[in-house]
Amino acid sequence: MEVVFHQDYVVERDDYASAGRVSSDIKRTLKKIGFSPKVMRRIAVASYESEINMLIHAWGGDITMDIFDDGTVKLVFKDPGPGIEDIEKALTPGWSTASEKARAMGFGAGMGLPNILRVSDEFDIQSGKDGTTLTLSFRSDV
């Protein structure tokens, strides 16, 4: 498979005012390319939840999007820490360690990672003290 589109994004630490902007940009890019609404929604939901997680649970981070010639979309979310203490619990619907700040934004339902897992075709998460890397893939009909 060959990469036909690549884009890097940065999520600044504690930049709550910009929360979701990267995901809006990703969705607009996918729309321009011609992805179907159903595929776009899946990718947008995963991207948005992951971006919010980088803000409310981590110290910002980097996002990359690669689109391959067969229509596969790969998103990588890499943050510098502090890491997820218990990934199994974090993947349990309803489990949340979100702050009051996050709850005021409408997050902290404990559905973030379960939502991401549900809409992704491939899901890999690696986490330690030095940070978390979440790699997601989505197949499409484009």
Binding site: A17, A19, G20, K38, E49, A104, G108, A109, M111, R118
Partner: peptide, 29 residues
């Protein structure tokens, strides 16, 4: 809770109305 909205499993979002008390930018995102 916006993650509850994002957890909806359906395709016909264009005919669904959201009722919320969250007057924040993340509602619109």
């Amino acid at each position: 809770l916006m993650s509850d909205v994002l957890a909806m499993c359906q395709d016909d979002f264009d005919i669904t109305v959201l009722i919320t008390g969250l007057a924040a930018d993340q509602t619109f995102r």
